[in-house]
Design a protein around this nucleic acid. Structure first.
Lengths: 346, 346
DNA sequence: GACATCATTGCAACCGGTTGCAGAGTAGCG
DNA sequence: CGCTACTCTGCAACCGGTTGCAATGATGTC
C-alpha cells in the first residue's frame, strides 16, 4: 500500500474562536451551539456544528474544566499492586473487569477515570486531587480502604463510593455483592443435586459478608425443609491452611456429609484436596461450591462450580452511584446480584 | 473517640491570588516562588512557601494545564476487560502490576494516569484525548493494539510507548521482555539440574518473542556443550490443546527426554498432564519450566517453575520512556530482564 | 402605528494559573 | 558622584472556554 498523500495541512488544533470566525458568529454562540443551549436558533446550531465537525474541532477539556469548575474526572483509589497487597482478597480479574465497567459507565456521562495509588495511612491525596480540581469524586475498593481514608473523605465533604463495604456507621454511597443471594444460590444448587448434608465453611464470622452468606445458606435449607445442623457449620479465616483444618474437622464430626459450600474458591480448593485425600470423589461423593470465581477456578480438577459477581456490572453501578451523587448529592446503597457458575465440582 | 471539634473553618480552597494577598506580594511572585523560578529572591520564596503550606494551598491543576498547554496526564489504552479479550495473552496480575509501576513512575514526575478503553478499529480517541488536551501521551499494550492504532498515533504525531511490541517497521518507543534472556535462563536452570534432553515447546514460530526464546534456549545449550536436537523442538499455537498434542508427539519421538521448556504456563501445565498420563513423574523424571508466571502457576501440582517479567518494572520503564519522549522527543527501545521463579516443577 | 414581548446574538468579565516586559531599587565600577 | 548592570517585583495579557447582561431585531397586541 502507498502511503497517504492527502495528508491534511498541519492544522494545529483549532479553538472556539477559530470556529466562530469560520461561522461568522461569536465565541459565545459557538459555545452555546455546541452545548445545546436554548439560547441559539436551531439554524445557527446546526450550521456551527457542521463547521465544527468539518474541521474536526475538539473542545479543550482543560479550559472547559477551568470555567465550569469541574474536571469531569473520577479517581479510582488503589493500592500498589506491585507488592504484598496484590489480590489478597479481590481476584485480579475482578479488579480489571470492575475497572472496565467503571470506565464504560463513566464514559457514558462524559467522565474519565484517573487511577491513583494511596497509602494505608496517608490521606493527603484527598486534598491533592480534590482541591487541585484534578478529580470530582472517588471510587474506593473496600478491601483496600481504611477507616482513616473514609474519615478524611467525609471530613472534606468529598463525593465517593465504596465497593464491598457496608456503611453501617458512616454515611456514604456503596455498592456491594449480594452475599445473601449468593449463599442461597449456592445452597439451592446443592440441594437441587440431591445433597442434604451440606457443610458451610465460612471466613471470619464477624464479617458481614460471611454472615450474609450464612443467612442465605440457612434460608435455602429452611425453604427446602432441611434443618440446619450446627455441626456442619464452621468459621475461621480465609487462609488455605485454615480451610484444610476445618474440612478435616468436619469430616470427623460428620463423615456422612455430601456437600460443601465454601466462602471462597481458595477454601473450596483446599477442601477438595482434603476430600480426595480421604478417598472421596468430587462431585460424586461430595459436591463442592466455592465463591469468587477466581481465574484458577476454571482450571482446577474438577473445574469449580462457584458464585461470582459481575465485575463489569459492579463498575457500572459504582459509576452510576457516584455520578448521581455528584449531580444531586444523594447517597445510596446498591446490592449486586450474584450468579452461579456451574462447572463440574457440583 | 469523640468527634473532632477543631474543625477548621469552611475554608473553600484558596487561589494564588489569596496567597499573594496574605504574603503581600503579587500573583506572579507567588507563581514564581512555588515554581522555583530564579526570578524571586530566596527570602521571598521561603516566605511565600511557608504561607502556602500553612494554609494548605493546593495549586489548581486545571488552570496550570490551561496556561502551560500540557495536562501532565498520560493515558493507558486498554480494551474492554469485561468481554472476550480478558487475559487472552497477558496475565491479569501482570496488567495490574504493570499499571501499578506505571502510576508510580509517572507520579515521580508529576504525571497522572488516565485509563481509557479503545476499540480495535476506532482511532478517534487519539484526537479526542490529544486535541482536547486531556492527555499528553499514551501507553499501549502490544497484545491489544492494532496496526491501525499505531498508524493513527504516528500520523497525529502523538507521543506514545508500546509494551511488548518490537517496532521493526515503525518508529516508536517500546519496552519489551527480554525473551532471549528468559529462554536462556530457563534452559540454564534445567541444565543445572542435570537435564540434557530438553524439549522446547514454542508458540507460533513466526513470532519474534518465540524466536528469541528459542535463541536463548539454543544459546544455553551451546554454552553447555549440548547439541540442539531438532527432534526435541516443536512449534504450534498457544492453545492448551495444541500443547497437549505436541507433548504427545515429543514423547513418541524422544521418549527419553528429561526436561521441557514451554513458552507459556498454560502450555507447561498441559505438558505436565501428558507426562503424568504417561506415567512419568514431575520433576523427578521430567522437569518442566513454563513462562509468564500466571496466578495459576503457584497453585498447580507441583507448583510451576517459570520465567516471569516484573510488572512493576515494566510500568516504570514505560513511564520513563514516555516522559523522556515528551521532554526531548527521543524514542527508545528497552528490553527488560526476565527472572526465573523456581518452584517445584524444575 | 406605538409599545411590550420574545427570541437571538455579542460583549466582556470571569475561571486560576503563567510569563513577557517594564520599572524600581540596589550594587558595582570608574 | 554618575552611570551601567543586575536583581527582584508587579502589571497585564495571555491560555480557551462559559455565562450574566445588554443590545438588536422581529413579532404580536391594542
Amino acid at each position: 500500500m502507498m502511503s497517504t498523500c492527502h495528508r491534511s495541512p498541519p492544522e494545529q488544533t483549532l479553538t472556539m474562536a477559530d470556529v466562530a470566525r469560520l461561522a461568522g458568529v461569536s465565541k459565545a454562540t459557538v459555545s452555546r451551539a455546541l452545548n445545546d443551549s436554548p439560547l441559539v436558533s436551531a439554524a445557527t446550531r446546526t450550521r456551527v456544528r457542521e463547521i465544527a465537525n468539518a474541521h474536526r474541532f475538539q473542545i479543550n477539556a482543560t479550559a472547559r474544566s477551568l470555567s465550569r469548575r469541574q474536571s469531569n474526572v473520577v479517581a479510582l483509589a488503589t493500592y500498589d499492586h506491585g507488592t504484598q497487597m496484590a489480590g489478597e482478597k479481590l481476584p485480579d480479574a475482578f479488579v480489571l473487569e470492575l475497572t472496565s465497567g467503571l470506565i464504560a459507565g463513566l464514559h457514558e456521562h462524559g467522565y474519565d477515570l484517573l487511577v491513583i495509588q494511596i497509602g494505608a495511612t496517608d490521606t493527603s491525596w484527598v486534598e491533592r486531587y480534590l482541591d487541585s480540581q484534578r478529580a470530582d469524586g472517588f471510587v474506593l475498593l473496600g478491601a483496600h480502604c481504611t477507616a482513616r481514608h473514609l474519615e478524611a473523605l467525609e471530613r472534606r465533604g468529598a463525593a465517593f463510593v465504596v465497593w464491598g463495604l457496608d456503611s453501617v456507621s458512616h454515611s456514604f454511597s456503596s455498592v456491594t455483592g449480594d452475599s445473601f443471594a449468593g449463599g442461597r444460590l449456592a445452597t439451592r444448587h446443592l440441594l437441587g443435586r440431591g445433597s442434604r448434608q451440606i457443610a458451610f465453611i465460612g471466613g471470619p464470622d464477624r464479617e458481614q459478608e460471611v454472615r450474609d452468606r450464612y443467612r442465605g445458606y440457612a434460608a435455602a435449607l429452611a425453604r427446602a425443609g432441611v434443618q440446619v445442623d450446627e455441626e456442619l457449620v464452621s468459621y475461621g479465616s480465609y487462609e488455605r491452611e485454615s480451610a484444610t483444618a476445618r474440612m478435616r474437622a468436619l469430616l470427623e464430626r460428620r463423615g456422612e456429609l455430601d456437600a460443601v459450600f465454601a466462602c471462597s474458591d481458595v477454601m473450596a480448593i483446599a477442601a477438595i484436596d482434603v476430600l480426595r485425600e480421604s478417598g472421596r470423589r468430587v462431585p460424586d461423593d461430595v459436591a463442592v461450591v466455592g465463591y469468587d470465581d477466581i481465574f484458577l477456578a476454571a482450571h482446577t480438577d474438577p473445574p469449580l462450580t462457584t458464585v461470582r459477581q459481575s465485575g463489569p456490572l459492579a463498575g457500572h453501578l459504582l459509576a452510576d452511584s457516584l455520578l448521581t451523587q455528584l449531580r444531586t448529592g444523594a447517597i445510596g446503597h446498591v446490592s449486586m446480584p450474584a450468579e452461579l457458575v456451574v462447572r463440574r465440582s457440583a
